[in-house]
Write a protein that binds this DNA or RNA. Structure first.
Lengths: 184, 184, 184, 184
DNA sequence: AATGAATGAGGGTTCATTCAT
DNA sequence: TATGAATGAACCCTCATTCAT
């Protein structure tokens, strides 16, 4: 339709983005070859060419999501002004994920739903979790990292389900207590 | 074959259980009228009779799940021997959900995936969250309850994704720190 | 389209006939759910209802064909006027199959193509062969029946491939020689 | 991986062989450009280069088959030791085709299925039949050749469908009767 | 109250074929 | 000469849902 283009090197990437958009709106179930093809403005045949199986398509999309999610996570911790209490970074992550990234939270929920039944998606998350903890360990004792990560996970998840807005002070207090006094 | 069961008052309930079984194994997507009818050993026509819409069926099933989940949660806190540190109840919840209830974790993950996009399922969880917090508030200060609940959520979720088993001591330590010294 | 008919008891049979028509014209490969549905004037969904698998459909159709073929075969031998040389019945079978039943020969060829690779179709033919021989054994010695059957098979097959018309005398002569002098 | 074969003069021939292998295993329908390309270890683009149309590919393969089949047929009759009863050659053909050449029988059945509906394949067989008869006429009267050929066809075909092995004596007897006493 | 028959709307996937390189 | 990229058309099959009984 849109000009016969013989080669389109970024097409694969554009499809991946479209997959995530469609999943966010219609769920993983709604991300059909057809719906994604339309969202990406790509012929149907092109879908199966780049992703022979629908599952290939989904896996690629969620891998991309995990990368994006971790980048955001890591950057918040990395770009803390020197001297800042790193616990404040954790609070900021809750805020950031809680606001303005609803789309990605929907996607993460879908990813978890897949992961609990399919090892391929589980590995995706495991790798992502590892990276998160590594990021946290730059600021906190190693044995605390998984706990902080878990609290974060629960807070962000609940914040997206809950009706009432977040009480930041309460979050801050919880993080501070969980982490305890800083070594320095 | 026919076994002619004229009246079968528990049929609705049996179907609901079957729905959850099927979802646990094949995902929400796999819970079709047909697959559930087979799992419940019920004629196909019986499905649409009890649940005119597939969504009615799913909603009923997840409502049942939320009830079950809360009962388990509440009972653990309720049946703590008098004098026990209630923080130990929280730890026990992590342990209980983490072991032997994989099926239900799969279901919870599916429920969250639905909830982030569909308000009807979201309300289900909101109500459930409310009940959880109410249970917690019998033992902990009200402003701590959502934080404990969030930590629990994250811990259980991560424990089901992670490969390595959970370090209970670390969980206990985290809970103790988050809650702080008990008032009594 | 054609009046909403809730029940249509002969529909299955009508579909089977349509399958054979379509195969005759477009080959087994051309007998798709869609093409048959159109030929039988039946909604597409009706096809998979009666024949859950395309293979079920084909198998049913070819079973029907084998029945028809044997009936014709048997009837020719059965309805020979008393006192007729039964060898003339064999000749008449060649003639009958050779003329006016091109459609069925196409079908038989397709059936053989399936049978050499798929045991389910092979059994179909084996059963049919058995019935043919039984019919022949009413007139000829048992050990001759398979030979007569084979000659018939080859003659009919070649007659449908060959350009030049059949030389009946030559066929008659061949049959007579193969069978030899009759016992009576 | 690449193995860069610049010139590969036998590639066309290798493809043709692969086509027959694939047809034998998956039927004509299963002989797609892709499946054959893989079987011949040839890039997909190479297929359409050598055979612009799938039908070109099939026709070439079946032409090759007819050649092979006739060669075998002719050689058996040609290499009979001098003085041998030529009827014994006919018996030996049945035996040869019946044993160890299942693959080719599958292919022949597929060829017939095509031939009854497509004149191009019919011509292929007609030419082959002509050659067979010519071979037979070197040993038998011309008017008997088509009859012998037909009996052969039927015997071989039935032997591949039947469960029970062939009774050679009976075949020999049938051939002898059909042919009658030799002129010499 | 309960159920089998029936169907239309897709959905995943395959594939012959075209074309630029 | 030779091949990878790309695509549109089907195809088989699944399923939610409707409806007559």
């Amino acid at each position: 339709m849109t000009r016969t283009r013989r080669t389109d090197p970024e097409r694969r990437e554009r499809i991946v983005e479209a997959v995530l958009d469609v999943i966010a709106e219609h769920g993983t179930q709604g991300a059909t070859y057809r719906s994604v093809a339309q969202a990406a403005d790509v012929p149907l045949g092109s879908m199966t060419y780049h992703f022979p199986t629908r599952d290939d398509m989904l896996l690629a999309a969620f891998a991309h999501l995990a990368d994006t999610m971790h980048s955001r996570f890591d950057q918040i911790l990395t770009t803390l002004p020197p001297g800042t209490d790193p616990r404040e970074g954790v609070v900021r992550i809750v805020v950031t994920q809680g606001d303005g990234h609803e789309r990605d939270m929907v996607l993460v929920a879908e990813l978890y739903a897949l992961a609990v039944r399919d090892p391929r998606y589980r590995e995706l998350i495991q790798h992502w979790m590892l990276r998160s903890r590594t990021s946290l360990e730059r600021h906190f004792p190693a044995e605390l990292a998984p706990m902080i990560d878990a609290l974060l996970e629960g807070l962000v998840l609940h914040s997206h389900i809950s009706t009432e807005p977040f009480d930041l002070d309460r979050v801050r207090q919880a993080v501070h207590r969980l982490v305890g006094p800083l070594p320095s």
